[in-house]
């Protein structure tokens, strides 16, 4: 009996999930085994981290400024205008900063990795590496996933800082608040339970973006069309995964009493 379309889709979904799980397990197995590709890792850190800085800083600054300007009228109505730094700090550090930066990161790096590895796959460069004795998974996947995992938290820290600077400028558009007071107000409301879960979840975001980008590119098929499809699906799936991980982290931190 021929399976109907939803059943086929469900089967394909579970098949894809299983493949990703196996791909992920393979990453851990390859990552702990020598030989380590440090040079390639450093290069990938530069490409993935440093070269994403401009985009992340720009979006972070706009995010902080806009958030402040959007919050102000409501807070003024309630007579708690002085709480803007505190509210923006909590919003940026706990949620907005990590998630928005991760989405930007997924858009830039996920698609980039997916397209790069996809094109290497369809042009049989990966096959050539295997033939030449180089472990393509270790060289291409492990380095990129590790770089993405390590660089996104740093990008998020910088993005948060720039966002708060944008918020500081946003506060000073209508009123005058000293930088000292602003910093004091920001750190007065922040606690380890705000910073640490948000910081730790960015490792998972980075890992998810790197892993999905590599999986989609590494398993790309059907020529140049497949490359575009890989890049696109890498971004979409990474974005969805970011929200799913965010949801899981919020639930876990809530259970652990960090909220």
């Amino acid at each position: 009996m021929k399976p109907n379309k939803p059943a086929k889709q469900l089967q394909a979904f579970f098949d894809e999930a299983g493949r990703i799980a196996r791909f992920t397990a393979w990453y851990f197995r390859q990552a702990i085994r020598p030989r380590y590709e440090f040079r390639e890792l450093i290069r990938q850190c530069f490409i993935i981290g440093y070269q994403s800085l401009g985009l992340v800083v720009l979006t972070g600054f706009i995010m902080g400024l806009v958030l402040t300007m959007q919050l102000r009228p409501t807070l003024v109505d309630y007579g708690v205008e002085s709480q803007i730094p505190a509210m923006v700090a909590i919003a940026v550090v706990r949620e907005v900063g990590p998630v928005i930066t991760a989405l930007i990161f997924a858009g830039k790096i996920g698609s980039s990795i997916g397209a790069e590895l996809g094109s290497m796959r369809v042009t049989e460069q990966i096959d050539a590496m295997e033939v030449s004795g180089t472990n393509p998974y270790k060289y291409l996947v492990v380095t990129r996933v590790t770089a993405a995992t390590l660089m996104l938290p740093i990008l998020v820290l910088l993005s948060d800082t720039i966002s708060l600077y944008g918020a500081y400028l946003g506060v000073n558009i209508k009123t005058v608040t000293s930088a000292n007071l602003f910093i004091w107000q920001v750190f007065d409301v922040l606690d380890f339970t705000d910073l640490m879960p948000a910081f730790i979840k960015t490792f998972f975001f980075g890992f998810a973006v790197g892993m999905i980008g590599c999986y989609k590119g590494y398993n790309s098929t059907r020529g140049t069309e497949g490359v575009g499809r890989s890049a696109n699906s890498a971004v979409v799936l990474s974005s969805v995964m970011i929200f799913i991980i965010d949801l899981l982290v919020v639930q876990v931190t809530d259970i652990m009493g960090f909220n």
Binding site: I42, R43, C45, F46, G49, Y50, L53, P153, I154, L155, L157, L158, D160, T161, I183, F187, D188, L190, D191, F192, L195, F199
Partner: peptide
């Protein structure tokens, strides 16, 4: 040069993390 840029980038991030931890820890 790329390595230096990457080093500055990483150190800046780590310094920010340390600063944030220090400020929150100082409060506690």
């Amino acid at each position: 040069a790329n390595n230096i840029k990457l080093g500055v980038f990483v150190i800046a991030g780590l310094l920010l993390l340390i600063f944030a931890l220090y400020m929150i820890g100082k409060k506690s």
